[in-house]
Amino acid sequence: MQRPFLIAILLISVFCVSCIPYKDTLYLQNKEQATDSTNVLVEQQKPYRVQINDILNIRIKVTDQDNVQIFNPIGEGNLNATAGERAYFDGFTVDLHGNIRIPELGKLNVLGYTTEAIEQKIKEKLLAEQFKETANIFVTVKLTGLRFTTYGEINGRGTKTLYQDRVNIFEAIANAGDIPDTGNKKDVLIIRQYPQGQKIHHIDLTDVNVMQSPYYYIQPNDMIYVKPLKQKAWGTGTTALQNIGAIATVLSLVTTSILLFQRI
């Protein structure tokens, strides 16, 4: 009687431990209050400062537009090129020293500047070297899409580019196919580039307060890594039903093996 009882206890333990808790699969939980409530959370986003390898889209407009054709890429070299390819060839890439090279204006250091500050720098340089105030210079500087990479326990691994000014972590993950139940939503890693190197930041996507995190909005060249849960390494199912099937299969194999040995 003791052996079947011990086997039953062992199977129940495996069953309970190997299941992924329901709360670990949910995003944006209100962990500070017992009841649901509507909270107003202030998003924290600082202006993005340009980094090495960023690609900038720069457009210059003046009263006589023919005078600025040399500054504005035509973008018709390859009509079959994708938007990303055109952005690469027509844009201005920030080199390892933080500089971009603009026709007639030469090198301009943009490392650590916001796009608004770069617009002002270009306008001042144009007024000092090329035009007068009466030219009515208008400069726009934008990032040529927000490029990021996802890998680990996520449905869509690889590099993606979204053509919008800001993207939060949930939008990035949704565009990567979402995180499966076997992915650790409580400790998602964001590897971010800084002038002094790369840093790793941790965020908990199951906590509603993630929207107040300074890393809630991703930045160009971010890498998002999702760690697998231990349950995946154990090779068990993610739900109770899957575990029942796995346990039944194991019991069937054990029973068959015992019967075969008894007949020998």
Results as ranks from 00 to 15, higher is better:
Asn30Glu: 06
Leu259Trp: 14
Asn72Gln: 13
Phe148Asp: 00
Gly235Pro: 05
Arg166Asp: 13
Leu56Cys: 04
Thr206Cys: 09
Asp187Arg: 14
Gly177Thr: 03
Ile244Thr: 08
Ser37Asp: 14
Ala87Gly: 09
Lys199Thr: 08
Thr182Val: 11
Ile52Tyr: 00
Val68Ile: 09
Tyr48Thr: 07
Ala172Cys: 06
Ile52Met: 08
Cys19Ala: 14
Ser13Glu: 04
Ile244Phe: 07
Thr63Asn: 11
Ala83Val: 12
Asn155Gln: 10
Leu41Pro: 02
Ile203Lys: 02
Arg59Ser: 15
Ala248Phe: 06
Lys107Tyr: 12
Phe170Gly: 02
Val14Asn: 06
Thr236Gln: 03
Leu189Arg: 14
Arg157Gln: 12
Gly106Arg: 09
Lys31Asn: 08
Thr115Phe: 11
Glu133Phe: 02
Arg157Met: 06
Pro180Glu: 09
Thr144Arg: 12
Gln198Ile: 08
Lys125Ser: 06
Asn184Ser: 08
Asn136Ser: 12
Thr255Trp: 12
Lys199Met: 07
Pro214Ala: 01
Thr115Tyr: 08
Leu126Asn: 00
His202Ile: 01
Ala34Phe: 07
Thr206Leu: 09
Gln164Cys: 04
Pro180Tyr: 10
Gly235Phe: 02
His202Met: 03
Thr238Gly: 09
Phe170Val: 00
Thr149Ala: 01
Met1Trp: 11
Glu171Ala: 11
Ile258Cys: 14
Asn136Val: 01
Ser18His: 09
Asp178Ile: 03
Asn99Arg: 07
Ile9Val: 15
Val139Phe: 02
Arg263Ser: 10
Lys61Ser: 14
Asn39Trp: 11
Leu253Glu: 10
Arg166Trp: 08
Ile100Phe: 07
Glu119Pro: 00
Cys19Thr: 13
Asn209Val: 13
Ala172Lys: 04
Phe89Val: 12
Asn99Asp: 13
Thr159His: 03
Gln231Ser: 14
Val141Ala: 04
His97Ile: 01
Asp24Leu: 09
Ala174Phe: 00
Gly106Ser: 07
Thr25Ala: 07
Asn243Arg: 05
